[in-house]
Design a binder for these strands. Structure first.
Lengths: 224, 224, 224, 224
DNA sequence: GATGAATGAGTGTTCATTCAT
DNA sequence: CATGAATGAACACTCATTCAT
């Protein structure tokens, strides 16, 4: 994926500016900690030890535990949104099933490249743990569902999708399926040498189910 | 649902026996607390106050916080399994799409009847918070997927499902879709007077997608 | 003074009951600490060390620093009120100057017997440091001034005090004078062998100033 | 009051020289902070933010929190002493009660003009919070009492005050009364449109009590 | 001269668990 | 069998002060 990704800053606003390298060390440690133990399970004590800085310094740069967490979540969500947008723009005009498959593929990429951010997304936020968790997730879900619904409605106008399909409800189903699939991919321990093949198989199964499930039943069209 | 449901015992083994009524009071309070604040967020202090029991007694009957939690999770999982089994046995011989729709319906029932157990399932365990959370969830998922795969394979032998469908992989997809749907139903705030209609609509959308997505392909049309 | 005095409980309500001896140890240490360093200067760490208990135990018995403080303040105020009431009832009918002198004497007693409670009263609360400090002090002051005003008005009806004296305003002045006198007595370091004589001299000076300052100027009365 | 008042320097000795304007900004903020939260409650962090100065600069010019505090206290005390002296010199030869009333009036002026310095005087120092607080206050009190005693002794030689009055002791009583009166005036919330009348009434009551309480006794009446 | 990053001891409070009674 | 007193480690966070730049 060539889109430049925003850096994890770990702070919601311009609170303090911290040299890039050090900031990286701290946020990396924080991502580790939050991903491993959840928001309320994470310990600032453990974090400073892992990051090799003093407690005073940590709070010098990040107002509070919640602030640090929000910065990380923001960054993660920003990356996800950017990737979704890239897929939408990059596949414009392609058949629905191909677009959805591309999206799923991008999801696999993200999970593989940022497993701990994925942990935070799938586990921590999903549990409602942490500040604004519920609201953030709701926003993300709405955005995601809206995107799916657009794709489907668009395909419907082009006759690719059966007319009796309710775009919003099916968007929900597809979103659900895809998110759980990614969560499982993230949680599962597929060995490295099998991952590529596995991914392809998943995408193919998904593509087939979607293609058949949504295609118009009218023979004249299918027969073409 | 007429299947008798196992009682929540809140203890993994026969550690101490506590009069049924008192045990019920304690586990109810524990379910409240765990559902509301997650495993590590839950406070034994708050729990004893809510249950009207002394701290000494609590630890006399439940070895530890983790033990109490596991007992509750066990009970919840036992109930879910029982319901799944009831659907399987009660719909034997019916078309696949009807069986899946029945399962989804049973899921809606469970979430509506036991919202706090659903909270623990969807939020607490999913976040990896609490002892054995990951392993328990994995077991449950395997059982669930195995069940789906059986249904599909069974339907495949009866010619209801296309032969090129990989039962295991599609079981995964269906499981994913269904679980997220239930999680959303649990988290969402559909007003009471709309719930019945909403449920029907969801089940119908799900049924249609499944029916079309898995049905055998008419060769004259799809072939080539 | 024979009035039985309320025990310092160090807790505003029946939060936890603590064996008398232990409770005494803790509240003694707390009084020491608060008297020495003020409310916000006092350290719970130092307190537990001085009391010889664990931090957990301290918070088991006293909800918070503020709660502990309030209990002590309550006890101190209760004792002061009881003594004031005892003087009022015990000197009913006596000439004004004698009643005021008795009150001042009782004040000296209190300060000598409870120097650290006096510290809290004169220093900590006066500084507005600590929960409810301002309100508590205001209540106490109103009670005190009301009492003075009653004494003066009463004496006025008996012709002991000049008619052109404003009871409320003079109550203020007398209250002020007496309180500062006690504060100074508390802060000063009069050696033990001089204290008795000093006290007598202070009371006498006060009595004389009051007697002359408030007496009616009409000769027929004074001459008697 | 036309006496030029010493500037608040906020540093006990010539530690570093800071441009007048900046120094003023800092000490103003410090007075705010100390008056509002007491010595140990005051935060250097909050102070630098309010003063718009860097932490490094603050500690460059003021050795420590205590040093800054002492400078402010010194300045406040210097102002008070100057005003007392001005009253003494400006009322030389006047009757005792007039001189005392003038002093009380000057006190009201000071409290009204510098409410935050008055806060520090009445609340912070009185609580013993802050370096040298006790000693400073004691010095101030001695000076004040000595001044009162001089006034009284002087009046005694002119026959204005009864011969059996002990100047030192009565100086104490007057000082006490006056200080508490000012503290109450400072703490009280007399509305602006009532302040002038209230002040006059207080001064008058004080003057009357003093005049009668200290006046030589008419032997025909009081004697025997 | 001026900055703000860095520090570590300090804050009050909560925790799950043990154990003597 | 039941109680609740006792514990000490852990919690997030603030503090006044130092010092390299």
């Amino acid at each position: 994926m060539s889109t430049p990704e925003p850096t994890i800053t770990g702070g919601t606003d311009a609170w303090r500016t911290l040299p890039e390298a050090k900031r990286h060390t701290v946020t990396e440690a924080a991502v580790d900690e939050f991903a491993a133990r959840g928001y309320s399970g994470a310990s600032m004590n453990a974090l400073v030890k892992a990051a090799g800085i003093s407690k005073g310094s940590l709070f010098h740069y990040f107002r509070s535990k919640g602030d640090l967490f929000e910065g990380i979540v923001d960054a993660a969500f920003g990356r996800v949104k950017a990737r979704v947008k890239a897929v939408r723009d990059g596949t414009s005009g392609a058949p629905l099933e191909a677009r959805l498959a591309a999206l799923l593929d991008a999801g696999f990429d993200f999970v593989d490249e940022h497993p701990r951010l994925a942990s935070i997304y799938f586990q921590v936020l999903r549990s409602g743990d942490g500040p604004l968790a519920r609201r953030r997730l709701e926003e993300m879900a709405q955005l995601s569902r809206q995107f799916f619904a657009e794709l489907i409605a668009d395909a419907q106008t082009r006759g690719e999708v059966a007319a009796d399909v309710d775009p919003e409800r099916v968007a929900w189903l597809l979103d659900a399926m895809m998110e759980r699939l990614l969560a499982a991919w993230h949680a599962g321990d597929v060995p490295a040498d099998r991952r590529a093949a596995e991914r392809r198989a998943w995408v193919e199964s998904f593509r087939m189910l979607v293609a058949r499930g949504l295609a118009p039943v009218n023979e004249e069209i299918h027969g073409a």
